[in-house]
Amino acid sequence: MPRYAMVIDLQRCVGCGSCSISCRNENNVTEGIYWSHKITETSGKFPNVRYHYIPTLCNHCTNAPCVRGCPTEAMHKLENGITMHDPKKCIGCRYCMINCPYGVIYFNWKDAHPSWRAGNSVIKEVTASPAEEVRKVGGKGTPYYNPERDATLPGIRPKGVVEKCTFCDHRVKRGKLPRCVEACPADARIFGDLDDPESQVNQLLGKFRPFRLKEALGTEPAVFYIRDFSSAGYPRTKGGI
């Protein structure tokens, strides 16, 4: 059984967020929930300013605090290292959200895709209502509903349960890369098996000094970062007094 991991090459990353939007799309994630997200920072003072961007997602920790705390094992580990959630068992206590150091777990506060439920149209008889559009197109929840998500997790999660990134377990299972990896225009995400010494993931982890988020907590994330978002050069200097 492989042990999946992701390497994010920050130098390749252009901070465009294609990962996040394509993830929304692939997993039919509702408004306001970010399975794939980012941590950004504008550092320095004008004119010495730069912008930094770190893409984030569930770290699929080996020692996952969310799994440890879940009273019903709704949050659980798969043998392939993926931290998976089963909404069927989720009682909605949100303890996993308290436990997760990375803020990657979200709660369905209400029915998903609320804006697509509206029944009004902006111009009577000339435009559709969102609900009518969904119906007519034949989607579910949204017109661009992705039915493939439904293979391992309800295609759209009900209210009252949490949800988070699953490393696209439904794709991985079919031998496809997670959607964010496929969709990254910069090829900044590299996915593979940690147990395979020859995997591209291991090749990169051996080449660079990777870091992971909040390593001191001992969660052992499966998402690694290499290189810098801003790899700028600067004029040589020893500083001065």
């Binding site: 705390g69 879940c70 009273p71 019903t72 709704a74 009682i91 909605g92 303890y95 209210k159 349960v161």
Partner: peptide
Amino acid sequence: LHLGSPLKVFYIILSPNPSSPLWWLA
């Protein structure tokens, strides 16, 4: 009224996780 899906507390019995303090508490 805090729990998102209170009826599913049955899973505390059906799918117990003793490493969870919440399970013990329940």
